Computed example of a mutant assay.
Amino acid sequence: MPEKFGAPERAALLVLMLESRQVPNPELANLHRVKLTPQGRARLNKAGLMRTSDDVRPMVHEITDEGIAWCLQDLVDGDLPPRSTSHARVVFGLLKKFVRHHQDRGTLVDVIRSRDIESLIRSVYEELAVEPQDWIRLARIRPRLNGAERGEVDETLVKMMKTGTVHLAPESNTKVLTAEDHAAALRVGSEDLHLVAMEES
C-alpha cells in the first residue's frame, strides 16, 4: 500500500504524471485547480515523488519515476474521499478495472504517459513563446517532445499548418542558422522551414 497523502497531493501527482513535463505552479493551481500547500509540496519532495525547482519564477514541479510508481499503485489500492458522489465511486471502480487490465499486460505506463502529438507541440510552444504568435525555432521545440518520432512530428506539423492557425516559415537570415536549426528544419517541397508561430486558440 503506498504512503497516504491528501487529495491535493494525490491530484498534483496525477496531473504531473499525465502532463509528463515540468508544470509551473500557477498552471497547477489555475488550470488544474490543484491547490498544493507548501507543506504538501515539501512532503512530496521529501518522499522523492516529485521535484520542485524553486530557483525559477514561477516555481515548477516535475514527477519522478518513484512518483509515477506511487500513482499507479494508488490508482489500484487508493480510496476515494468519504464524501464522494455515487457517480464518482462508480467511475473510480471502472478506472481500477482499466488500470488492472493494462497493469497485467505491462502496458499501463505507455497508456498513461502517452500524449497527443499536436497537444504536446502546442504545449511546448506555449511554454517557449513570450507573446502570442511569437516565432519559435523548431530547434528549440523538437528536443522537448518526449522522444516523439520525427516522422510523426513532421506529419503533425504539416497538418497543423493546413489549419491556417499555425504558421511555419524559413529563417530569412540564413547566416544565423546553426547546425541544430538545419537538423530540426521541416522540409516542405523544396523549402526548409525553421520557425513556427501559433495563433491563440
Rank of each mutant, 00 (worst) to 15 (best):
residue 32 H to S: 03
residue 34 V to K: 00
residue 34 V to H: 00
residue 36 L to V: 01
residue 38 P to N: 02
residue 38 P to D: 04
residue 39 Q to P: 02
residue 41 R to E: 12
residue 41 R to Y: 00
residue 46 K to G: 05
residue 46 K to F: 08
residue 46 K to R: 12
residue 46 K to V: 05
residue 50 M to Q: 09
residue 54 D to K: 13
residue 55 D to I: 11
residue 56 V to Y: 07
residue 57 R to L: 15
residue 59 M to Q: 13
residue 59 M to I: 10
residue 60 V to W: 02
residue 60 V to P: 00
residue 69 A to L: 10
residue 70 W to V: 03
residue 72 L to P: 00
residue 74 D to N: 13
residue 75 L to M: 14
residue 76 V to G: 02
residue 77 D to K: 14
residue 77 D to S: 13
residue 78 G to K: 00
residue 79 D to G: 10
residue 80 L to C: 07
residue 81 P to W: 03
residue 83 R to G: 08
residue 83 R to P: 06
residue 84 S to V: 08
residue 84 S to N: 06
residue 84 S to M: 06
residue 85 T to I: 07
residue 87 H to Y: 13
residue 89 R to T: 10
residue 90 V to D: 07
residue 91 V to L: 15
residue 92 F to G: 05
residue 93 G to P: 01
residue 93 G to K: 01
residue 97 K to L: 14
residue 97 K to P: 00
residue 98 F to N: 10
residue 98 F to R: 11
residue 101 H to P: 02
residue 102 H to G: 05
residue 104 D to F: 10
residue 108 L to H: 05
residue 108 L to G: 01
residue 109 V to T: 14
residue 110 D to L: 11
residue 110 D to Q: 14
residue 111 V to P: 03
residue 112 I to H: 01
residue 113 R to V: 13
residue 115 R to L: 10
residue 117 I to D: 00
residue 117 I to L: 09
residue 117 I to Y: 03
residue 118 E to H: 02
residue 119 S to V: 10
residue 120 L to H: 06
residue 121 I to R: 02
residue 128 L to D: 01
residue 128 L to F: 05
residue 128 L to T: 05
residue 128 L to Y: 03
residue 130 V to T: 13
residue 130 V to G: 14
residue 131 E to A: 13
residue 132 P to K: 06
residue 134 D to A: 14
residue 138 L to E: 01
residue 138 L to F: 12
residue 138 L to G: 01
residue 141 I to N: 00
residue 142 R to Q: 09
residue 143 P to W: 06
residue 143 P to Q: 07
residue 143 P to C: 09
residue 144 R to A: 08
residue 146 N to C: 14
residue 147 G to A: 03
residue 149 E to T: 10
residue 149 E to H: 12
residue 150 R to T: 11
residue 150 R to F: 03
residue 153 V to E: 03
residue 154 D to N: 12
residue 154 D to H: 08
residue 155 E to C: 09
residue 155 E to Y: 10
residue 157 L to C: 05
residue 157 L to G: 02
residue 158 V to M: 09
residue 159 K to M: 13
residue 160 M to D: 01
residue 160 M to Q: 03
residue 163 T to R: 05
residue 163 T to G: 05
residue 164 G to W: 04
residue 166 V to W: 02
residue 166 V to I: 11
residue 168 L to H: 03
residue 169 A to Y: 09
residue 169 A to L: 10
residue 172 S to Y: 10
residue 173 N to H: 08
residue 173 N to G: 00
residue 175 K to T: 15
residue 177 L to W: 01
residue 178 T to F: 02
